[in-house]
């Protein structure tokens, strides 16, 4: 189980990196944390003439709040996003979701940009990104553009990136004061890839929910927002019973594909459960706030 031949390119500046990518975009694969890519290379499911390593590019990591956005550099390690007080304060949903990503030694290397670009429907961070309508910043020698997470993910393991573009930042909205959030997943084992994920954020006024955002991952080719569930919460008091009701609604509104180890019906049930659990967490964090 050894990777095929390639040339490893290790630029140190963003401009160089984009230039390298622009030379032969179709023959170049970007390497971030390598926690998804290298297994695929070792098994030769991915082969490439050129590997563009972003690990030495300066200025691609780090988190900061800019206005109403939490800006997460693409090369920010999962572990940093999990533990950073800045993230915990500005976007606790992301920090919470990060705890579920693989194991510490995976999170020490794996990156936020990498998991976004990898676009695995069951991955935790993409689910959060869709729920919060995060913006994915793409850069190339041609310029810079931003895509909404919902537009960036176009299929399981597929994204809307042009071959000469790199993900350079991910922008998450800063949490509105007093908003509630929850993240739940179902995995067969601790640290294993989940079968489904759910991310929830909502605001509250006079005890009633508004502006709810709910996304589930693993229930289709990409994580998706569940508009019906969101409206079902609008203007109602979040209770255990409502959480269950919305969970059921969520299960009805998705149609996951059958897979060898997991049937459609079971996955649908899991959607019910994780949506409910995410809402229950939101409820708990509401209690904490009070």
């Amino acid at each position: 189980m050894k990777p095929a031949q390639f040339q490893l390119l290790q630029p140190t500046t963003r401009a160089e990196a984009l230039a390298v990518l622009a030379e032969q975009p179709d023959e170049t694969v970007i390497l971030a944390g390598g926690q998804s890519l290298v297994p695929l290379m070792n098994m030769r499911f991915v082969t490439a003439e050129r590997i563009l390593d972003l690990n030495r590019v300066s200025g691609l990591g780090g988190v900061e709040v800019r206005g109403d956005r939490l800006v997460v550099g693409a090369m920010t390690r999962h572990r940093e996003a999990e533990l950073s007080p800045v993230v915990l304060d500005a976007c606790p949903l992301l920090a919470h979701a990060e705890r579920h990503v693989g194991y510490v030694s995976i999170r020490n290397r794996g990156t936020v940009g990498g998991t976004i670009a990898h676009a695995d429907t069951v991955a935790q961070v993409p689910c959060v990104a869709v729920a919060l309508d995060a913006r994915i910043v793409l850069e190339s020698v041609r310029g810079r553009r931003e895509l909404a997470a919902g537009d960036f993910f176009v299929g399981n393991l597929m994204n809307a990136r042009e071959p000469d573009e790199a993900v350079t930042e991910v922008h998450f909205p800063v949490r509105p004061v007093g908003s509630l959030f929850g993240f739940a997943e179902f995995a067969r084992k601790v640290g294993d890839f989940p079968l489904v994920t759910a991310a929830v954020r909502l605001e509250q006024g006079a005890g009633l929910s508004r502006s709810a955002r709910i996304a589930v991952g693993g229930a289709g080719p990409t994580p998706v927002r569940l508009a019906e569930c969101e409206s079902a919460l609008e203007g109602r008091e979040l209770t255990g019973a409502l959480a269950e009701e919305v969970g059921r609604l969520a299960a009805e509104s998705v149609s996951p594909a059958d897979s060898p180890f997991v049937s459609t019906d079971y996955r649908r049930n899991l959607v019910r459960v994780v949506v409910r659990r995410a809402l229950e967490q939101a409820l708990d964090c509401g209690e904490e706030l009070r």
Partner: peptide, 9 residues
Amino acid sequence: QAVRSCLMF
């Protein structure tokens, strides 16, 4: 930091 040496070059 703990890392997996099979996932790095």
